[in-house]
Amino acid sequence: MALLARLTELAGQGSQFIIATHSPVLLALPGARIVEIDDDGTTATTDYDQALPVRLTRDFLAGPDKYLRHLLDED
């Protein structure tokens, strides 16, 4: 959260950043332009709610069992 606050402060002073991340927290930076890179190398701008890390995090939090069952062998 401190990094997010500092980035917001610096952006307000005219700084620009290129950040590669899977963090939904960093993707929430106000005014951020989110660009996703597909497996074939194509890029597309997306909004926060449609960004893959955000969707995956929300899906996981809504139903962790459907993700964990693939990792944990509890038969």
Rank of each mutant, 00 (worst) to 15 (best):
I18N: 08
P30S: 09
A32R: 05
A2G: 05
S23Q: 14
L68T: 09
R58P: 06
H22K: 12
L26Y: 08
A28S: 15
D40F: 02
L7H: 08
E74C: 04
Q13H: 14
M1C: 06
V25D: 11
I34D: 07
D59Y: 00
R33H: 11
T43M: 12
L26M: 14
L71R: 15
R69D: 12
L71H: 11
D40W: 01
T45Q: 11
Q13L: 15
T43H: 08
P64I: 02
D65C: 00
Q16A: 12
L7M: 08
T46P: 00
L10Q: 10
E74G: 09
L3P: 00
T21D: 06
R6K: 15
T57A: 06
D49L: 06
D40Y: 01
R55I: 14
R55V: 15
I18G: 09
L26S: 12
R55H: 03
H22V: 13
F60H: 06
I34V: 13
D59I: 02
G31E: 07
V54R: 00
V54H: 02
L68S: 10
Q16W: 07
L68W: 06
R6G: 10
A20I: 15
T8N: 15
I19G: 03
F17D: 04
L56A: 14
L26K: 11
H22C: 03
G12R: 10
L52S: 08
E36G: 04
L72H: 05
G14E: 03
T21R: 09
Q16P: 08
D49Q: 11
F60K: 08
R33S: 10
V35C: 10
D47R: 07
A44W: 02
K66C: 09
L29V: 13
A44L: 07
Y67H: 14
E74R: 14
S15A: 15
P64L: 03
G14P: 06
T57N: 06
M1P: 07
T46W: 00
L7R: 09
T57F: 02
L7Q: 05
A5D: 11
T45L: 00
T42Q: 15
D75F: 01
R69C: 10
G63D: 14
G14F: 09
K66M: 06
S23F: 12
D59L: 05
